[in-house]
Simulated scan of single mutants.
Amino acid sequence: MKFIPVDTTGALVMVAQEPRPKLKNRQTGELAFDTETGAPLMTLDVTFVANGQADILSLTVPQPGVPDDLTPGTLVALTKLIARPWENEFNGQKRSGIAFRADAVTASMPAFASANG
């Protein structure tokens, strides 16, 4: 499957919504798990600011890579962020988009913060 590494150098990334379990099936509430490790997957919405533009990205992250204390407004760093194009068809309607996945999320300090506070 094709994927594109995303360069987060110089980007400001902030939690927009608290992490929540990723659902495999919204109708049944079935949870999603990583196919390689079996770890539960989480969904995390972040504000991603780079090159003068801000976007809200919905990321998939394995649960072991998500700290318990992430709250909206927390500045974070993303480990191995990738973008994966997807396409599907349902009832004759084609849909496509880009899915984002990171190996881990860690709280970070903004680049402009000084050591003296």
Rank of each mutant, 00 (worst) to 15 (best):
G10R: 08
M1C: 05
S96M: 09
V13F: 12
T8P: 14
M42P: 01
S108F: 00
R84V: 06
G65K: 11
A83T: 00
P85Q: 15
A115Q: 15
G97D: 09
E30T: 07
T43P: 01
F48D: 02
P67I: 04
M14V: 15
F3Q: 13
M109F: 12
L41A: 03
T43E: 11
V105C: 00
G117W: 05
G92K: 07
N88A: 15
L78W: 08
K2V: 12
P110C: 08
N25T: 06
L75G: 02
V76N: 11
R84W: 02
S96I: 04
P85H: 14
D103W: 10
N25L: 03
R84Y: 02
I4L: 09
G97Q: 11
P85M: 15
Q93D: 08
L12K: 15
S58V: 07
A83D: 00
V49Y: 00
D7G: 04
K80V: 09
A113L: 04
P85K: 12
Q17L: 10
A54N: 10
A107C: 15
P5W: 02
P5A: 07
G117K: 15
P67A: 05
P19A: 10
F33E: 12
T47G: 11
A50G: 01
L57E: 05
P110D: 15
T71H: 13
Q17Y: 07
M109D: 12
M109P: 00
Q93M: 12
G52S: 14
Q53C: 03
W86V: 08
L12W: 11
E18A: 13
G97T: 08
I56E: 11
A39S: 14
P72C: 06
P67D: 00
N116P: 00
D103K: 15
A32Q: 05
P110R: 15
V46N: 08
K80P: 02
L44G: 01
L78R: 03
L78H: 08
I4K: 02
P64F: 04
L41M: 14
F90T: 09
Q17W: 07
V105N: 01
L81A: 06
T9R: 14
P5Y: 03
L70S: 07
W86H: 10
T37P: 07
E30K: 06
I82R: 14
S58L: 03
P19D: 05
D69S: 11
P62I: 09
L41G: 02
F112T: 08
R101Y: 03
T28W: 06
I98C: 02
E36M: 09
A50P: 01
V76R: 08
E87G: 13
G29R: 01
T28D: 04
D69V: 05
L57R: 10
V13K: 06
R101N: 07
V76S: 06
T37K: 03
I4V: 13
L31H: 03
A111E: 15
W86N: 12
N88F: 15
T37L: 04
G65Y: 08
D68I: 08
M109L: 13
S58P: 01
